[in-house]
Amino acid sequence: MWQSEAMWIDFSSPHLHPFLVMIGVDGVNAITGTPFTGEPDFDADDYIEVPTQQALATHRRPYGDLRQFVPPSVHDGPDAASPGHLLQFTVTPMRAEAWARRRHHAADRPDCVLCDISRAERMRAVPRATPSRVLGPLESPDTWQPSLSRSGAVLVVNSATWRELTGGSPRHHPLTSTDYDAHRLRWHPTYSETPMLSSPI
């Protein structure tokens, strides 16, 4: 990612089959700010339910503050501690019998509140931030099939680390102050790709 970029994570599901998704950022649960274990804590509600809660815009850090998903800064100089941010995912499907009941319910009960929420959430254009999850958990713990859970990880790096890894620049072009102005967004010098070192070179 370029310094001028931030991202939000959007999940989709074939045939709208529900999944419980846990997200970690550098070993920290993105929802709660506690250590990421990959094991859902149903009391803490430290996961999202896809496709009903399909997007995540920010992640919570151990200190409780929220951050956007952005690349590591190139402005920290050559001694920057981390080459990237590790995003971890653990995905658990809904049990087949629970999914069959939901599909049958949706077909027979078009006024189903849960189904109405799901349809409304799927059409949301704005991603969900981590605090104040209005819907809360929609399913009981026994709805999910933990024996079929799968995990994966993605390393988010800045343009400098990408060049070191691949020998080339990211395929897409960085956003500029002109792009920001066109969308009426405020530009900040740290969005530039030029390192801003605190001491002379």
Rank of each mutant, 00 (worst) to 15 (best):
E97V: 04
D76I: 14
R101I: 02
A80P: 00
W99Y: 13
A81F: 05
R103T: 13
G77M: 11
H85D: 02
G84M: 05
L86Q: 11
L86I: 09
H75K: 10
S82C: 09
V74H: 10
A100L: 08
A100T: 13
F89L: 07
V74D: 07
W99Q: 06
R103C: 11
G77L: 10
H105I: 09
G77H: 08
D79V: 08
R101K: 13
W99G: 00
M94V: 12
E97T: 06
M94K: 06
T92I: 10
V91D: 01
T90Q: 07
T92N: 02
H104Y: 03
A100G: 02
L86S: 04
G84L: 04
R95H: 07
L86N: 08
M94H: 03
P83K: 09
A81P: 00
H75I: 11
L86M: 10
G84C: 02
A96M: 09
H104I: 06
S82E: 13
V74T: 15
T90P: 01
R102A: 10
A80K: 12
E97P: 00
P78N: 13
P93L: 05
S82L: 15
L86G: 01
S82V: 14
R103H: 00
S82F: 14
R101Q: 09
H85V: 01
A96R: 12
H104C: 08
A96P: 00
R101N: 10
L87A: 01
D76E: 15
H105D: 15
P93F: 04
A81N: 02
Q88Y: 03
D79A: 13
T90N: 08
R102V: 12
H75A: 12
P83W: 07
Q88I: 04
T90E: 07
H85C: 01
E97L: 00
W99I: 05
R102K: 12
P78H: 13
R102P: 00
V74Q: 12
P83V: 11
V91M: 05
P83M: 11
